[in-house]
């Protein structure tokens, strides 16, 4: 057999063997056996000396091609086997994705904190400071500085837990107004502050009353604040909390520490003002009280009421959350049943 034929034969056999292989190891062996230094191709090329000189380049080229062809056949088969193996492995590793997860729970922020912090962040965005104030407060700040002297009938509306004649559990976060006003340096710009926190009233606990609840007081004092600013601020707040299409309205009211005083209603988010059970068929829901700081309140803090004016508002996070989420019993906030708490995961 000529060297030429021998090489062609080796190619044919090598390719066939590669195609027949079933395992990667066989292919590796084949490569070593056929293409290695001790392999048949190398051996065959030793017969080159018998080939006439002018044919040698041709044979050389052929030998290289044979090697390449066998190499290619082995590689093709290898990748085929690899693919088969992966497919098999994937099939074996298939799982039931409907089985329950290994839970990694994050806790739920209390819904009142979520409600309060949502409102805080809204006001922080408008440049308000957050100042929580004291829960044990002096009669002086809780009442007198808010234009509610000792015999004022408004004290009846807020039955108070006293600790001593002069110390009490604050009944309203407005108690912080006097402290904020007297400590503010107006040369550094306007006073803009909200005071969130716990307040206490001498009330029996029932579905709509709690002896402990929360309030957020807001206060801006500057040379140019007006009722229009109050309306715009509360409009923005109500849209932030209750939805972008909400309208608000003011109704005259009375608080000793604001003049004029207003109750603020928001258009019903449930029926869009058409009237429903939530808004008692009026289309409006009362959400907070507000007004212009009473000149006496400003003056008692050493602020010239002919130069400065203030807007003040107070709202109840419990009421906001009850409205927004349809909570019907205020006691639920303080019983802390985890099934109640966890339903509010991520609402704010």
């Amino acid at each position: 057999m000529s060297l030429n034929d021998k090489l062609k034969d080796l190619r044919k056999n090598g390719i066939n063997e590669a195609k027949r292989a079933e395992r990667l190891q066989e292919l590796n062996d084949l490569r070593v056996n056929l293409l290695g230094k001790k392999g048949p191709i190398t051996k065959a090329l030793r017969g080159m000396k018998d080939v006439p000189a002018e044919e040698r380049p041709e044979i050389g080229t052929l030998a290289n091609n044979v090697k390449k062809d066998i190499q290619l056949a082995i590689e093709e088969k290898m990748s085929e086997l690899n693919e088969q193996m992966i497919a098999k492995k994937l099939e074996e590793e298939k799982i039931d994705v409907t089985l329950p997860a290994q839970s990694r729970n994050i806790g739920t922020r209390h819904i009142l904190k979520q409600t309060i912090e949502d409102i805080e962040e809204f006001f922080i965005g408008l440049g308000y400071r957050v100042d929580a104030g004291h829960e044990v407060e002096e009669d002086h700040y809780n009442f007198e500085r808010l234009n509610i002297p000792k015999d004022h009938p408004a004290r009846d509306m807020q039955d108070t837990f006293y600790l001593t004649d002069e110390l009490l559990m604050r009944t309203q976060t407005s108690a912080q107004e006097g402290r904020d006003m007297e400590s503010h340096d107006f040369s550094k710009g306007p006073l803009k502050v909200i005071s969130p926190g716990v307040v206490y009233r001498r009330d029996d606990d029932d579905a709509t009353h709690s002896h402990q609840f929360h309030q957020i007081e807001g206060l801006v004092v500057d040379k140019n604040v007006s009722m229009a600013d109050l309306k715009g601020t509360l409009e923005a707040l109500c849209r932030h909390v209750f939805g972008p299409n909400r309208e608000i309205r003011f109704r005259p009211s009375y608080f000793p520490f604001t003049e004029p005083s207003v109750e603020v209603d928001v258009s019903c988010f449930n029926c869009n003002g058409q009237g429903c059970r939530i808004c008692k068929y009026t289309g409006w829901i009362e959400v907070l009280g507000a007004g212009l700081s009473h000149p006496n309140v400003l003056e008692m803090s050493g602020i010239d009421s002919t130069v400065y004016s203030g807007i003040a508002f107070g709202l109840g996070p419990e009421r906001f959350a009850m409205l927004k989420y349809g909570i019907t019993d205020i006691r639920d906030f303080y019983l802390n049943d985890v099934r109640f708490l966890e339903q509010f995961k991520g609402v704010n």
Binding site: E120, F123, I124, G125, L126, G127, Y128, R129, V130, D131, A132, G189, P190, K192, V220, D222, K223, N224, V225, S226, M227, A228, D229, K231, G232, T233, L234, E235, A236, I248, R249, F250, R251, P252, E259, P260, S261, V262, L292, I311
Partner: peptide, 28 residues
């Protein structure tokens, strides 16, 4: 002020935001 604005009608009052000096708000 209260008498004038309530008889004039709060519904006719257009909301604005306080226009004073910028303040930087935040938590303590």
């Amino acid at each position: 002020v209260e008498e004038v604005i309530r008889i004039y009608g709060y519904e006719n009052l257009k909301g604005t935001l306080p226009s004073g000096m910028e303040t930087s708000g935040g938590y303590s």
